[in-house]
Amino acid sequence: MHKRSITLCMMAVTLFSCTSKDKVPSSTNDILRTTNEFDLTDTIPKIMIQDTSLAFPKIFEGSFLKGTKVAQFGTEIAFDKIAIGNLKISSGQIIATDPVMLSDAIAFSENFPVGEFPVELAMANINVNKDRRVAFARVKFSDKPIKKWAFALLPGQAPIPLKSKEIYGYGVDAGLGLFVDRAAKNNLDTLLDKNWDSMFSEKFEDYLNHSFQNQNAVFFSTGYGDGFYATYIGRDSEGKICQLLTDFDMVLWRNVAE
């Protein structure tokens, strides 16, 4: 088993699970999956957000705003935001994936702004068991209001509705996700091979912004851990990209009317 996986299996953290770096996508099912697998109940969450002007799904932006709460599964979830530094984007192409799968990952087909942009995590604080998890991770390119959200697509993928019965996304086996510029992919993959143990030791908590060779990557824990998670692009009224956001299925927003 690859050393990246060995370390994760030894960590006494329920968030992580054992996996192999050598696993490769066997079919399109690794990037397209039915949403029924994630609907554990038909409960409709009650989402309480002060800013009623937000585009659907309101929880995408609302989870980063003070005072947002969700009533779901018989408990209340309160949200707060963590800023974890900037992501350097030099090629305009971004990869979102499980770091164990990085060598096989490809960038989204969209061209993103070039520069350094803040990365933020929306933390879900679950009242019933005093638990705290990463609910959403985003790269923020603009402060302009988002008019519309859509799936971030890989080359060859056709657009689908937000509430489609199937979703695009990436599988997680290591309890971790990341954002990285495509130009930094190969250097990062080599870095992970050599430094996985030190980067993701028992001291790892929720996130890591790691710099290397004038590049960087941002890592974060993924909700309740392993699963299949979709990434979305938010655009303003002029169609310009404002945000790239990955949803870790902490809130069943698909059950809420638009």
Rank of each mutant, 00 (worst) to 15 (best):
D181Q: 10
A152P: 10
D226I: 12
A158P: 01
F200W: 04
N125P: 05
G115C: 06
G156C: 11
Q50N: 10
V134Q: 03
V180R: 02
A12T: 09
P45F: 13
T7W: 14
V114P: 00
I77E: 04
L192Y: 07
N209A: 05
D131I: 00
F151G: 01
K144Q: 09
F64Q: 01
M250W: 07
S164V: 09
A122P: 11
Q72W: 15
R4T: 08
A105P: 04
M10H: 09
I126R: 09
G227C: 11
L54W: 01
S237P: 00
D206F: 15
I160G: 09
I241R: 06
S237W: 00
A78G: 08
A152G: 10
E205T: 11
K163M: 14
C242E: 01
E110K: 13
F79V: 02
D98W: 07
G171C: 02
R132P: 02
T231C: 05
Q93T: 12
K23E: 14
L245I: 10
C242I: 00
V172W: 07
S17Y: 04
R182E: 15
K46L: 15
A135L: 00
V13Y: 05
Q157W: 03
A55C: 06
V100K: 07
R33M: 14
T75W: 10
G223A: 10
D30L: 00
E202G: 13
H2P: 08
I82W: 11
S63N: 06
S63W: 03
F212V: 14
G85S: 04
G225H: 08
Q243K: 11
K3H: 13
K130A: 15
E37L: 13
T14M: 09
S237V: 09
S63F: 06
D189T: 08
T75L: 09
L121P: 12
W149C: 02
F73I: 10
E202I: 11
K21D: 15
S20P: 03
N209D: 04
P57D: 07
K147E: 11
F200R: 07
P145D: 00
A158D: 12
S164T: 11
S26N: 12
L188Q: 04
D30C: 14
N255P: 01
I31V: 12
L87P: 05
F220D: 08
F219T: 11
C18Q: 05
N255M: 09
G85P: 03
E166H: 10
D42W: 02
D143E: 13
H210Q: 15
